[in-house]
Structure formats: structure tokens, C-alpha cells
Design a protein around this nucleic acid. Structure first.
Lengths: 135, 135
DNA sequence: CTCCTTAATAGTAACTGTTGCTGAAAAGAG
DNA sequence: CTCTTTTCAGCAACAGTTACTATTAAGGAG
């Protein structure tokens, strides 16, 4: 009886699955709060970490910003807009090729690729103007 | 006269250049402290961010851990040991291929690839034992 | 070289994202 | 239903980073 199915755990997982963007822990907390007004922030963080550790969701590290979470557990490619901070999926022509022989002794489990640039909405902006803010 | 060459700025940059590993801001602060005992932590952070913004050094985002900095400003591939937290360079057989046509409207500036796994030192450890600690 | 303007600094407080702690609640086995 | 143990809410604490303010010093003008 190691893992219990609590309402809170289910709500956190459902919230991540329902959000097509790549929400931060705080955004997930806000979303879950709508359906379970009494939930604690610690509970959301604890469940997100457990779900990520167990491979059910994926954690995306972003420089100078809080981590984000993603409903797909398999490693893939993300795009980070340096202007508005939005994170979204990105298609690659070819995945990076990881050759174990080039790095002997290393055990590779998965990888994460983050492309930095400007999203289609921000690319046309006057870059000297103030960046648009995420809601 | 927008950018001044201060001793502190030079020391911070030199410290990053001298460290072959991928130090955190805190490790760089400790290193600079040896040569300039009065330097403020805020100064180190400010200079690291400026150097990264200006493209002289590179910032590496790590999930659930402080950001790390790297002397090479060009995008490349890092390995993160999930056990000891060490970050090091990693060789790729082929770089990922980014096709602008697949993601219309997006402006790609650079990318960052993080491989997760176990480093050669940790790969042989009993994974149920306590992880080795970085110095 | 000396003065002056202004960027950069030291020191500290504040802030944000996250985790740890404690007593209470509840999931699930028997 | 009862008991055990995980998980919870609420809160305090923590780590990493940034903001603020008075002070210092870089570097151009004279």
C-alpha cells in the first residue's frame, strides 16, 4: 500500500493533463484551487514532484524562471520565448543522436532540449518596447 | 560610457573562464571571494547576468537546482547526473536539426540540450544507497 | 593631473519558489 | 468497523536571487 489515490493527487494530475501550455507549479496551484479551494500549496508541490519522479509528468527547467510541468512524460523538445516567457512544444527535423560510445561510462536516461528565441507573437514586436506579459 | 571595466566584473568573468566545471553562482562567488574578500554576492549575480545577457558566458538551466554558468557562450550539450548533481559537457553524434519551416513564425536564437542520467562515477554505485555529495 | 558625472559597488532587506515540520484527516487492508 | 500509515492543511523556514540606498570609483572633459 505504498501509493494512495487521493482527491488532491488526482486533481493535480488532471490539471496538468488539461493544460495544453506548460504551466508552472504556481499556475497549477491556481487551477487546482478552483476545484478544491482548500488545497495547500505544499500538497501541489509534493504531488507534482512525485508525479515527475514516477514519470507520469515531465519537468522542464527554465533558466531564471520557475520550473514548468508538461503532461507528456516522454522527453521532447520545448521552445522558450525570451521575450514573453512562454514555453511551447517545438518540432525537430531530426532528434539529437546520442552515441553512448562517445561518452563511455555515462548512463543516459533521457534528455531535454530547449530552443531559445522569439515566439510568433513576439517576433514582430518592437524589441526595444516593453515585453508583453503572460497572463 | 555605458559599460565600465571594474575589477569585480573582471574577476567574475575570469573565475568563470578558469573553472572547467559548470559552477553555480554561489560557487563562483566563493571563488571570487578568495581574490576579492569584500565582494558582494549581489555584485556576482549582477555581473553573471550581464555577462550572460551580453553573450560572453552561457547560462545552463537545471531542474530543481540553481542555474549554472559556462565559459563557452555558444550553445552546446550538457550532461546532468541525477545522482550527484554534477554537470559536465557531453559529446553528440549529431546535433539536433532545427528546421525553421516546421515552426513558422518562430525566431530561433540558440538552444540548450541537457542529457539526464548517471555519470561514470555514480553509475556503478548502489542506487539504493545515499547519493554521493558534491564538494 | 584634477574634477565631475554617472555606472557600479557593498551591505542589507525583501522577495519568490520550494521544502520541512506538526498535528489532523482519510485511504485502504484486514 | 478499526487500525495503520500515507497524505493532508497550515505554517514556518529555507535557498536562490533581486531590489534598494548610500557610497565608491571609472573614465571622459578640461
Amino acid at each position: 500500500m505504498s501509493r494512495r489515490n487521493t482527491i488532491q493527487r488526482t486533481l493535480v494530475k488532471n490539471a496538468v493533463m488539461a493544460m495544453s501550455c506548460h504551466p508552472t507549479a504556481d499556475e497549477i496551484y491556481d487551477e487546482v484551487l478552483k476545484k478544491c479551494p482548500g488545497i495547500s500549496k505544499g500538497t501541489v508541490y509534493r504531488n507534482l514532484n512525485r508525479l515527475a519522479d514516477e514519470g507520469e509528468i515531465f519537468r522542464v527547467a527554465v533558466a531564471n524562471a520557475p520550473d514548468r510541468f508538461d503532461r507528456t512524460a516522454c522527453p521532447h523538445c520545448h521552445f522558450l520565448c525570451l521575450r514573453c516567457g512562454q514555453v511551447c512544444d517545438f518540432k525537430l527535423a531530426h532528434d539529437p543522436e546520442i552515441d553512448p560510445a562517445l561518452n563511455p561510462g555515462f548512463v543516459v536516461l533521457d534528455y531535454e532540449l530547449v530552443i531559445n528565441g522569439y515566439c510568433s507573437e513576439c517576433a514582430g514586436d518592437d524589441l526595444s518596447a516593453a515585453p508583453r506579459q503572460l497572463s
